[in-house]
C-alpha cells in the first residue's frame, strides 16, 4: 500500500489503514428478483464494476446506494457458512464465492432466489423445510467405549475410517443441493416424504461413522424417500464444498437398502465405489423382498413460487438417466 509522507508524520501509520477503492472498470448490469410471496419481477440495477469482486459485493453496493431494503441473506462472505445461496444466471450458487469475472462479460447478471423454497422477500427464501427434515434424522448413537478407551479417555478410530464421514461433514448446509434436486424443485408434494441430498449425505455420514450403532436403512427407504432419487448428480454438480454426494453418499445408501441381487443402482454403485461398513449380504438380509428403487422421471418444470425464468435461464435440473 502507498502512504504519503504527510500522513506518516501526522499520525501513526498503520498497515491496516483504509485503502481507496480501486478505479471503476466499466459497469455491470444486475437483474435482481424483487418481490414476495405474492409475486414480483426482475429489476435492473447498473453498478460500477470493480476488480476482484464477487456477486455478493455488488449486491451489497446495490443495498448501500440504490435499494436499501433489498433482502439478501448472508453471513460470513467467505464460503464457510452457506447462507447466501441463490440462482446466478440460472445456476444454484453461493453469491460470496461467485466472482464477477467468471460470468460472461458485457451481459447482465441475473440473480434469483432459490426456486425450490417459498419466497420470504427478494432473494431470501424460507428454508425451514430443511430444518424440519433434520429433526427427523435419528440422532447419532455411539457404541460404548472399550476398556482401553476408558483408560486413554477417548475413542480410537483410524484416520482412513473417519475420512469417509468427514467428507460429508464438510457440508455447509447451503441447501443448493436441495434446491437443484428435481424431486423437490418440481414437486412440492414430495417434501413430506423426501429428505433430499443434503440429508442423504447426513445419513450416509452416520451410516459410515465408525462409532454409530443405529441402522437407518428402513427409515431411509420408508420415510425419507431414498428411492425417489434417480442419481442424476445435479446435487454433486452444485455443491460448493465439492462433496461427491451422489457417488459417496446416495449410491452407497441405495446399495445398502435395496436387494443387492436385482437392483441396477446397486450394481452401478458397486462398479464405482470403494468401501462399505456392512457387507452386501447384510444389506440384502436386512432389506428382503425389495424390488428396484422407485424411480421417478423428472416431470415438466413447475416452479415452486412462480418466478418467471429470465432470458437464458437453464435449470440445471435433471434429465432422465441411465437406470430408468
Amino acid at each position: 500500500m502507498s502512504m504519503s509522507s504527510e500522513e506518516t508524520t501526522s499520525r501513526a501509520p498503520d498497515a491496516t489503514a483504509p485503502q481507496a477503492r480501486p478505479e471503476s472498470q466499466g459497469e455491470v448490469v444486475m437483474n435482481l428478483w424483487r418481490g414476495d410471496a405474492e409475486g414480483g419481477e426482475f429489476v435492473e440495477y447498473v453498478m460500477p464494476a470493480q476488480e476482484g469482486e464477487v456477486v455478493l459485493d455488488v449486491i451489497h453496493r446495490v443495498q448501500a446506494t440504490a435499494a436499501p431494503d433489498l433482502a439478501c441473506r448472508w453471513n460470513c462472505k467467505a464460503g464457510k457458512c452457506g447462507s447466501c445461496s441463490a440462482e446466478i444466471n440460472g445456476k444454484p450458487s453461493l453469491m460470496c464465492m461467485t466472482r464477477m469475472d467468471t460470468l460472461p462479460v458485457g451481459e447482465p447478471v441475473t440473480v434469483a432466489p432459490m426456486r425450490a423454497f417459498p419466497i420470504i422477500r427478494d432473494l431470501v427464501t424460507d428454508v425451514s423445510y430443511n430444518y424440519e427434515v433434520a429433526k427427523r434424522i435419528p440422532a447419532f448413537t455411539p457404541r460404548p467405549k472399550t476398556n482401553d478407551e476408558m483408560k486413554v479417555g477417548g475413542y480410537r478410530m483410524a484416520q482412513i475410517d473417519v475420512e469417509r464421514s468427514q467428507e460429508m461433514r464438510k457440508c455447509i448446509e447451503c441447501f443448493l443441493c436441495q434446491d437443484v434436486c428435481h424431486v423437490i424443485r418440481d414437486h412440492e408434494e414430495n417434501k413430506t416424504a423426501y429428505a433430499g441430498p443434503r440429508f442423504f449425505a447426513r445419513s450416509a455420514e452416520l451410516e459410515m461413522h465408525p462409532l454409530d450403532t443405529i441402522d437407518r436403512r428402513e427409515i431411509l427407504q420408508q420415510e425419507q424417500g431414498l428411492g425417489k432419487c434417480n442419481i442424476t448428480k445435479c446435487c454433486t454438480e452444485v455443491c460448493p464444498e465439492h462433496i461427491k454426494i451422489t457417488d459417496n453418499a446416495i449410491i452407497p445408501l441405495k446399495e445398502r437398502v435395496v436387494d443387492a441381487s436385482y437392483d441396477p443402482i446397486a450394481w452401478l454403485g458397486r462398479k464405482i465405489r470403494r468401501r462399505v461398513k456392512g457387507t452386501v449380504a447384510e444389506a440384502a438380509a436386512a432389506a428382503p423382498a425389495q424390488g428396484p428403487a422407485a424411480v421417478q422421471p423428472p416431470p415438466p418444470a413447475a416452479p415452486a413460487h412462480g418466478i418467471p425464468a429470465p432470458d437464458g435461464f437453464a435449470p440445471v435440473a435433471a434429465q432422465p438417466d441411465s437406470q430408468d
Binding site: 443495498q63 436499501p68 422477500r121 431470501v124
Partner: peptide, 9 residues
C-alpha cells in the same frame, strides 16, 4: 425505506 419484513436497511 421499505417495510419491516426482511429489510436489511
Amino acid at each position: 425505506k421499505g417495510g419491516q419484513q426482511y429489510n436489511p436497511g
